[in-house]
Amino acid sequence: MSERENILTRIKEALSQEAHAHHGRGLPTVAEQRQVLPRVGATVDEQFALFAKNANDLRATFKLVGREAELATELKALSAAEQWQRVATHVGALTEVAVKLLGLPTLTTNEGYDKHELERCDVGISECDALIAQTGTVLVTSRSAGGRALSCLPPHHVVIARREQLVPDLPAAMALVKQKYADNFPSMISFITGPSRTGDIERILVLGAHGPKKLTIFCL
């Protein structure tokens, strides 16, 4: 017998004795989840306000930008302040606009890339799948955001999203992932909630443990 069969057989035997369900049976419905999870406003405006508040609490930067010109001003200001030399990004309608505005040497990850080169980039600019109001989270996947490392290796992660990408809560985000990718999931789906952090030394918060020290979200 293979170990797989050994283990599954042991499990079946173990389960032959029934356990008492002290807290009820049956998987909860999404409606039940929503009754207990943190409250989210019903209107889009409320949800944007909530996202902005959460991002601020998480020490991420969130900006609603009206037009491309506004995005250009913001990006150039960031670039000048942090003296960006090299930019990493991926192919995408929104990222292309951003990169063109910056006019810096650019590494595009889509076709594969050299790890050392990505590590030398000052910023990773990516798109996302959704923004989650409830928690201030950016949802990215290996397909929507240029792979696994682009959103994590450079010291600054800039996300460019569209207004329509805001979803109210976690159940909505889970449903979106399943609906969008059900027949072919990306190999990585990541819920990014603020810049990288640690509290491992005396429980004192330090940003940028291994991932980005900064997270900036522009919403067009």
């Binding site: 696994r148 952090r197 640690t198 443990a209 291994h210 991932g211 980005p212």
Partner: peptide, 10 residues
């Protein structure tokens, strides 16, 4: 929290 698992997996 740190991004170390993200990089380990990437």
């Amino acid at each position: 929290n740190e991004g170390n698992a993200r990089l380990t997996a990437a």
